[in-house]
Amino acid sequence: MTDIQNVALTSEDIVIVGLVAETKEDATRQLAQTLAAAGRVTDLEGFLVDVRAREEQMATGLPGGIGIPHARSAHVTVPSVAVATSVKGVNFGAADGPAHLIFLIAAPDGADDKHLHILASLARKLVHEDFRQSLREARTGADIAEIIIREVKQ
């Protein structure tokens, strides 16, 4: 983590293909653990408190089968998105059913504009069904990470 400017938004080691989780809390914790293991989150429990606080204000499930738990947190070192695919789906509170794609978006508290712009363009991508479709169809974590990095303008 010497040069955080050049750390990519996501990578294979923070992608979980075929996540198994009963609740959104469980799903979020599993994704957050990958962020902590990768050194992108310094304090796992502290970060989860921040994500839960955001989630309690309004559920982050969205139409089209996606869930986007997210937070700006002092425990985040670099803007990151941990991704999970789930065959069974996890209930993130969306009206049209469970989320089969889950994006845990982590932004450092004092992130600069450039980093926040990357997250903004990721958010814009999530609206597009063809983008979501390509992620659902990807078979490996490496493929998913590669698609996101390619599609989200740095």
Binding site: R54, Q57, A71, A107, L119, A123, L126
Partner: peptide, 10 residues
């Protein structure tokens, strides 16, 4: 939106 990193842009 509240956090200003996702829903705003979506």
């Amino acid at each position: 939106c509240i956090t200003g990193i996702a829903h705003t842009y979506m």
